[in-house]
Computed example of a mutant assay.
Amino acid sequence: MGSLDTHDSLCRHLAAEARTAILAVDYRLSPEHPHPAPLEDARAALTWLRENGRRHGLDPESLAVAGDSEGAHLAAALAREDPHIAGQLLLYPVVSAATDTASYRRLSRGFPLTAATMRWFMDLYTDGRTEPGEAIVDLAVDPRSIPTFLCTVGHDPLCDDGLTYAAALTRAGAEVQHVHLAQHAHGIFTSAGAVPTAERVLASACAFL
């Protein structure tokens, strides 16, 4: 799930408030296009931007990556493999393939994203041909020291992994702005209607960009 349409307002908000250009990537989705198709699409978009950005009035030497959920995982994976990316903005990212954390055990029902749903997503992403640990980069292992804005939410099976990643980035010497919303759930930034807390966090994210 997820598309250019579902994230249009979020991308427009970032572009307007941060006064920067946003290139939104409509990467292929599972199960029709499992790993590594989504990451290949993200890499292709980055390559295109580097080769063609100036023709569109963009500066390909001043790039940050951003995303939410799996999009944040793809963004962070690009940032770790590409030393020319200057920063990353990650909203409740998928950090690893681990599903045995306390937040996974805690979030079993009653929220937009539960542990069972997340495991189902991972199965679709790998299509049974790849182990989740091979397809989903463990971002907390040897993280790149890069300026990072990271938001985690308490009612989210991904919560503990996100906290681990924030700590790993800090130990690696990265400049990290970490916002933890203990009483909010996965999807807060694309939920219907305006959530005041989300608006405040996005203001900080735009200032970071």
Rank of each mutant, 00 (worst) to 15 (best):
R106K: 09
L14V: 14
D68H: 06
G87S: 15
H7W: 08
R144Y: 01
S204T: 08
L23F: 07
T20C: 14
L90D: 08
L202T: 10
T148C: 11
A72D: 03
T164N: 06
D123M: 14
L181R: 00
S62V: 12
S108I: 11
A72H: 03
A24T: 09
A140V: 03
E51D: 12
S103F: 00
A167D: 13
A75T: 02
L107C: 15
H73C: 11
A166T: 05
G2S: 13
D59M: 04
W120K: 10
G53M: 08
S96I: 01
M122I: 13
G154H: 00
P38W: 04
D160P: 07
P196I: 04
A174C: 12
V179Y: 03
E199P: 01
F121D: 10
L58F: 11
A79K: 00
L46P: 09
F149A: 05
R19W: 05
P132V: 00
A98K: 09
G87N: 13
L49G: 13
A75G: 00
R105S: 06
A172G: 06
R43G: 13
R200N: 00
G67L: 02
Q88P: 12
T197H: 01
H186R: 01
Y165T: 04
L163V: 08
V179D: 07
T101P: 06
I188W: 12
E61M: 04
C159R: 12
P38G: 10
G162V: 08
G53V: 07
T164D: 15
Y125V: 01
L209S: 09
E70D: 06
T170S: 14
T117L: 11
E32V: 13
I136L: 15
Y125A: 02
A44V: 11
D26T: 06
P147M: 11
V176Q: 08
V94E: 05
G71S: 05
L91G: 02
R28I: 14
P132T: 05
P60N: 03
G162M: 07
A194G: 07
I22G: 06
A18Y: 06
V65K: 01
S145E: 05
I146S: 03
H56G: 03
D100K: 01
A79M: 01
C11S: 07
A174W: 14
R19G: 14
A166R: 05
T114I: 04
L113M: 11
H56F: 15
S103A: 00
R19A: 14
V176I: 11
H56M: 11
A77P: 02
D161W: 09
L29M: 13
Q177A: 09
G2D: 11
V94W: 06
A194V: 13
E51S: 13
E17F: 08
A168F: 08
H35W: 14
A18E: 07
H73A: 05
R55Q: 15
T197R: 04
L158R: 00
Y27V: 08
N52W: 15
A207K: 12
